[in-house]
Design a binder for these strands. Structure first.
Lengths: 179, 179
DNA sequence: CATAATGACCGAACTAAATTCAGCATCAAT
DNA sequence: ATTGATGCTGAATTTAGTTCGGTCATTATG
């Protein structure tokens, strides 16, 4: 019987802290996940197997959720991007509303604090398709009103970055918070 | 001299229409770009080299912009997601404002129609870091005011999907548009 | 109508990368 | 000091990526 003895740590989620090399690896793979482990190892200062082991661990832990192709919206006939704010009667997150996740046009659904209940990011072929989506929203029980912000130009759009700004410049006039 | 004779079609951008197999390939690779070409070929009904050739073409044409690792925001200490609407004096897209793209917290910058000029998607460690980012925004010349929508829960968040909703159900009470 | 040219595909052969493994170094806990 | 666990390296092996010659279907051309 050759049962693995390290099953416990293989499936553990307890996201053990990422060290600087892990961050580097994430940074590289966010930019381009098609490179070889040899190349990756070179860039972060590890041998190919070591780099590979790190990446496997990052996948297992869930730090790397997926590796996916980033598609050009124009190439798939979706040049129109819009953010739709939805005001609902009662709590917004109903199964009826969630059903729109089936639409491949809908990329994000969030519930937000502020004067809106739900916030959608949608990408459509044209204004007609956006109208179609909005009409479907209005047919959904509980939807009171929507406000759409149609994107004119996108200046930056990128995946989650592994880096964090170390320190924010505190303006002089700003009081020091207790917490 | 062994100059390639098909340089013209090799570097052409003229995004020739995607056929159904291309769409299938995109769909598969958006879900998981780590599979082998053998596997990809199986799923779309092609041999490994044929699938590979398709993917290379999709990359060359720009339909596949990149292949990247999707990181879990929590794993990199960025549990707080917010959309920041910025009202500016004059035209919003100034070099000063664009400078915030350097912040790894900022994932998207759009100019939008509607009552806001610019729209940001930002992901920070906590409300403190968000405040730091906002304070930096207010230091930026031309920024008049901001409204932040802090995300409470994210129900859907995915990359650009290759599919398109074929037909939107037109409500009966809706007049038929001329265009 | 025949025929050349093109584009896309397949299978086989080859090259390169992924993956496994044994051995070693480091560190923490006993 | 000794044990155990972890993470690394370099070499060996397996698997996948890539190239290539040939075929077929489609379209343009004589």
């Amino acid at each position: 019987m050759d049962t693995e003895t390290d099953d416990i740590q293989r499936n553990r989620q307890p996201t053990r802290e990422l060290d600087p090399i892990d961050r580097k690896i994430l940074g590289v793979l966010v930019d381009d996940a098609t490179i070889s482990y040899a190349e990756l190892g070179d860039r972060v200062g590890l041998s190919p197997p070591a780099a590979h082991e790190r990446v496997k661990r990052l996948r297992r832990s869930g730090a790397i959720r997926a590796t996916s192709a980033i598609i050009d919206p124009k190439a798939v006939k979706k040049p129109l991007l819009a953010f739709v704010h939805i005001d609902t009667r009662g709590w917004g997150k109903t199964p009826e509303l969630m059903a729109i996740s089936e639409c491949p046009e809908v990329e994000e659904i969030h519930s937000v604090a502020g004067d809106s209940c739900m916030l959608l990011k949608v990408r459509t072929e044209d204004t007609r398709a956006l109208e179609g989506l909005l009409s479907r929203l209005y047919e959904t029980p509980g939807v009171v009103s929507t406000r759409s912000y149609v994107v004119l130009s996108t200046y930056l759009e990128r995946p989650v970055q592994p880096d964090i700004t170390a320190e924010w410049p505190t303006p002089k006039h700003m009081a020091t918070p207790v917490y």
